Amino acid sequence: MQLTVTDTGPTLVIAVGEARIDAAIATRFKDHLREVVVHHRKPVVMQMGAVDFMDSSGLGAMIALRKALSEDLPLTLEGLTPNVERVFRLTRMDTVFDIRPEAENEE
């Protein structure tokens, strides 16, 4: 699984390097990321620009990750490709997640 986790101090930045988040990796993806976010207990920015496809299993993994964070800790999704953004929009999960069009520069 291709994930890069960077602790910037106030925020945990997770760059997803997988092209697909589907049934084949969703459980491992969810379990690994849940451990990471619960351990760090801080706002999460997930950079999703490399993900070209997400199915309902992948969406379920993202929801589980959101639930693993306390309500006062935001989970921001950045740089969704059109296909992945469509999954969030069609399921109305775009109202649950903070979705931003592109990654912001940390410099």
Rank of each mutant, 00 (worst) to 15 (best):
L69V: 09
A103V: 03
G60M: 02
A68Q: 09
V87C: 10
V45F: 08
I25Q: 08
E78G: 02
R89H: 13
E78T: 12
M54N: 01
M54D: 00
E35T: 12
L77H: 07
E104D: 12
M1P: 12
T4H: 12
L65V: 03
K30V: 00
V37Q: 02
D22E: 12
V13R: 15
T91D: 08
E71L: 13
A19K: 15
A26N: 03
V16R: 00
R41H: 11
E102V: 11
L90T: 14
F88Q: 13
E104C: 06
R86F: 10
T27D: 15
P74I: 11
T81A: 08
E35K: 14
Q47R: 11
V37E: 02
L75I: 05
D31H: 04
V38S: 13
L3M: 08
L69R: 11
Q47N: 07
V38K: 15
D94A: 04
M62C: 12
E71M: 09
M46I: 00
G9L: 08
L77G: 07
P101R: 06
L73N: 02
T91V: 10
F97R: 03
H40N: 10
V38N: 05
S70Q: 09
V45D: 11
A23Y: 13
V96A: 11
P43T: 09
V36R: 12
M54S: 01
G79E: 01
V13Q: 15
R92P: 03
G79F: 00
I25C: 14
F88I: 07
V45P: 06
D22M: 08
I21D: 03
L80P: 00
V84G: 00
V13Y: 09
R92W: 07
V44D: 01
D55E: 09
